[in-house]
């Protein structure tokens, strides 16, 4: 009865991203999420897909300010994650189908998760 969950992570290069995503799309995977992690100097972007609880994770590592192609042409619903990525991390994503242009999640400070953000206390009301 119980299905075993597997998680795999594959690193992809920026230029291969669209192709890989298309391959997963063709393979019947659904988009679970796109998430971003700041790792000091660079960003790690995880594109997570799932098919029958087989969890595939494409990992893209990019420098700040690198433009990333949107996958919303392949997965229509990707726009929520891509807009969020842009608003919180300041990663420029090009060609989103519904581009909120930085107004999806408006924050008190711009790009709160950005790795290049100039110092200052992130805490408020401490």
């Amino acid at each position: 009865m119980t299905v075993n969950e597997e998680q795999t992570t594959i690193s992809v290069a920026l230029e291969d991203l669209t192709r890989e995503v298309e391959a997963l799309h063709a393979g019947g995977y659904r988009l679970v999420q796109i998430g971003c992690t700041g790792t000091g100097e660079t960003y790690e972007i995880n594109y997570s897909f799932d098919k029958d609880y087989q969890y595939r994770n494409l990992r893209l590592t990019v420098e700040p300010e690198t433009e990333i192609p949107s996958i919303s042409g392949i997965y229509w619903g990707a726009f929520v994650y891509e807009n969020e990525m842009h608003d919180l991390f300041g990663i420029p994503v090009t060609g989103i189908n519904i581009d909120f242009k930085g107004t999806f999640i408006r924050t008190a400070e711009k790009y709160p998760f950005s790795v290049t953000r100039s110092g200052g206390d992130r805490c408020r009301n401490a």
């Binding site: 679970v32 999420q33 998430g35 971003c36 992690t37 619903g77 726009f79 929520v80 994650y81 969020e84």
Partner: peptide
């Protein structure tokens, strides 16, 4: 990083 169900349900 927390991806909640509603976020995934917004596109539908």
């Amino acid at each position: 990083r927390i991806r909640t169900p509603t976020l995934a349900n917004i596109p539908p």
